[in-house]
Nucleic acid binder design. Structure first.
Lengths: 276, 276
DNA sequence: CTCGATATGGAATATTTATTCCATTTTCAG
DNA sequence: CTGAAAATGGAATAAATATTCCATATCGAG
């Protein structure tokens, strides 16, 4: 079996390691399969484990794991582990320790609340890094770069996002209009053909945002939706859908991921429009 | 010298380790001092290094490092390292790998921009965890819990924060008034004695916010400032100052840390006011 | 079924790493 | 200055870990 032949070179980065792992995992005999599965699920333990520990975790003898490392292209386990030890992310455990201290200050205390919201914010941002639809983002930039005026609709919890977009577009000298519902005035007639709408809404989906999105579509505007998933009513009929989810703590959700996405979108659009 | 006597028990957590390290560092002979300094600055390498590597880093012979581990209360280096290996934060390197991939998609591309803003958001939140003034936060909660109406002032970049606070206070059934400057109307007469103001502003400090804060103080309101440091003009004269900084990427800054802080404040105030 | 190729497990061996011990140096109190 | 206590460095030793090798088992093609 050609899979037993070690690859000629060892992966030189964690990313390359993952690719190699995926590639060789296509066809493996029983014990080596166990190794692959366990390693894939415990990449974060490679730097801090021994052959014996990982082998025990995979329920194989150490020699099987040695063979597995060689199939991946390493001379042995030590070479593989060196890759991970050298690539180790700095900063731990400072943040984790600190967060725990804050949390331990007492359930419900302002400090413990802060710890929870900090954590949910970070998790939300991390989740965005993994889940972002890069094509949709690029498409949204294209659509908005070609638009006349960019209209912004987001109410209640989404309002901070919409207003931040208005701020950034102003900074980037992009024609933008914030629909803030002031005085219950009806600005729908400002939705002109060739314009575009960024509609921002999350469950339980503001009626006003949905209505404005529908009105925009009817008037021939392109609609870019920022919402919490493909099942969102806002996604339906939008030209582009940027899905982003936030982690809850209690009755409230972070806004960190949404703002990072919005900011990236606005800066990319502003840059594209200025021709830089 | 009594410092040479090993402590009776080994630290049982990373936090305890840090406390022990700080405690014994008060007085140490030359080589052991070098060990303390190096370990303190490289806690994140303990799990993935050998005695020889850490000793070389500290510029001491391995035996000095062994002695240092024993002074900390461990039987040896292995016991100390075990503490860190067992406490190792899971999840790495998935996020780091992903972020690198996003960044590598091309400088200035929407995706690379997103990577940068995700990273600056996470760093800002982490920085908040480390820098938060817990006493100031508790004091702000006390002040706002005792207030009649909570007035909210934040313009331009700070406006999303102020509007989010308004949203959360509404959800928590707290009397709150968002000063949004609509129609350039002057709502300063709504600032009643017994009320409080949350004033949010960052460099280059909105004139409107500073003016409203000053007006509030003159009318006997308590002022809670959310701003970017003790040198901020907003901090001067405020009853409580909540300092929060954000990491820049290019001309724009994250808002993640500020929002997490604001959200925590609002929820704590709402909870305190409802008597739960 | 046979036989060759492949997979497997475990023990022996090699290598690396942690630890101990001791001679020497340095420090500090009297 | 002396002498005892403490600090220091390095080599020897012990322990842990990685690796190799070989006998045996399993698989699959003919």
């Amino acid at each position: 079996m050609s899979m037993s032949e070690p690859s000629s070179t060892a992966p030189a980065s964690v990313e390359e390691f993952r690719e190699r792992l995926a590639m060789i995992s296509a066809e493996l005999p029983k014990r080596l399969r166990q190794c692959a599965d366990h390693i894939a699920a415990n990449v974060d333990r490679i730097a801090v484990s021994t052959v014996a520990e990982l082998a025990a975790g995979a329920d194989v003898p150490p020699s099987a794991l040695m063979r597995f490392c060689q199939i991946l292209g390493f001379s042995g386990f030590s070479e593989m582990q060196r890759l991970f030890r050298d690539a180790y992310a700095p900063g731990w455990p400072d943040y984790a320790t600190r967060l725990k201290t804050l949390r331990d200050s007492g359930a419900g205390s302002p400090t413990a609340l802060l710890a929870e919201f900090i954590d949910s914010g970070r998790q939300s941002l991390e989740s965005l890094a993994k889940s972002v639809d890069e094509q949709a983002l690029a498409q949204a930039v294209d659509v908005l770069s070609a638009a006349g005026t960019v209209h912004l609709a987001g109410f209640r919890r989404a309002y901070p996002v919409a207003s931040y977009l208005a701020y950034v577009f102003e900074k980037m000298a992009v024609s933008a209009m914030l629909h803030d519902g002031a005085g219950k005035l009806d600005h729908r007639f400002a939705l002109r053909p060739g314009d575009a709408l960024i509609a921002i809404s999350f469950a339980p989906y503001s009626v006003e945002t949905l209505a404005l999105a529908e009105e925009a579509r009817a008037r021939g505007l392109a609609v870019v939706a920022i919402t919490d998933g493909a099942v969102s009513p806002l996604a339906e009929g939008a030209d582009v859908c940027l899905a982003v989810s936030e982690v809850d703590f209690g009755a409230f959700r972070s806004l960190s991921a949404t703002l990072a996405l919005a900011l990236s979108l606005a800066v990319a659009v502003g840059t594209a429009r200025s021709g830089v």
